[in-house]
């Protein structure tokens, strides 16, 4: 597995896309830091970008990579290697290479700016770790889509819909239900709805770390109380882990049965 992981990681890290992704984050976070100079504000701006871009790139790139390397996969399958190892290796290779681009791309400007000695280090850490988690979750989902669908068009379509749903549509439905049921106490509902969407959960976790959380009033207080306790924090981390595990589990199950 390690060998496959190594090959696919190197393969991906050599590709133009990985460099583009890296260059984008380098330029963007460097530019923001240079222009604004206020780390807290930059973290917020980067948060918006990471929450949209990480899932998008992970899903699209994941599906693309899966279909592109299909022939290689088939070749590997002809060898006496366990299927599980092959898919694990490829999935981890994808997720790790994307995460490396992200961490380096954002890390270099921040470290150059001197974040390591500042008090904002934890905000930065939350940001990065949420980005990495989202990358893992969504590249897993992308792989799952690829495995389930032989048809590339269908696969791409599903990937786009998946991203659109979690990044945009979910929040729309969320907001709509909040407006429709505004006569009722909605804290519990909004807490549940947030925890169920990894993008929303990451956003709230980052926002609560920043002092902007005071804007969130009573609802924010409920969240803070929930996430402030060991139980709440554990539960949200568990949900994120569950989200990361779910596609992997799906991949494994399909890999066991699938007939190529």
């Amino acid at each position: 597995m390690l060998k496959i992981l190594k090959y696919s990681t190197y393969d991906l890290l050599r590709s133009r896309w990985a460099y583009l992704y890296l260059a984008f984050f380098l330029l963007f976070s460097g530019g923001l830091l240079y222009l604004s100079g206020d780390v807290s504000k930059v973290v917020i701006s980067l948060m918006n970008v990471i929450l949209i871009l990480c899932p998008l790139i992970a899903t699209m790139f994941g599906v693309m990579y899966y279909y592109n390397s299909r022939e290689f996969t088939e070749l590997l399958l002809a060898q006496p290697i366990r299927r599980r190892t092959i898919f694990w290796g490829q999935y981890l290779g994808l997720a790790i290479s994307l995460s490396v681009s992200l961490v380096i791309g954002i890390g270099i400007p921040f470290v150059a700016y001197g974040i390591l000695h500042g008090p904002e280090i934890w905000n930065f850490f939350t940001l990065i770790s949420n980005g990495v988690l989202l990358t893992f979750i969504f590249s897993g989902l992308a792989f799952l889509i690829g495995l389930k669908n032989e048809n590339k068009i269908r696969g791409f379509g599903l990937a786009i819909v998946l991203w659109l749903f979690f990044a945009v549509v979910y929040d729309g439905l969320f907001l709509l239900s909040l407006i429709l049921f505004k006569e009722y106490p909605l804290e519990g509902f909004s807490l549940a709805a947030t925890v169920l969407n990894p993008i929303d959960l990451s956003r709230i976790m980052i926002l609560l770390k920043l002092d902007i959380s005071a804007l969130m009033g009573y609802t924010g207080a409920v969240f803070q109380k929930f996430l402030g306790t060991a139980l709440g924090m554990g539960l949200s981390l568990l949900t994120l882990a569950l989200w990361a595990w779910l596609p992997v589990w799906g991949i494994q199950r399909i890999a066991q049965q699938k007939d190529f």
Partner: peptide
Amino acid sequence: QTPEAIVLLRSFFV
């Protein structure tokens, strides 16, 4: 109108 909607602060949809 709906103060609870603050949970969607800074989301892409907003």
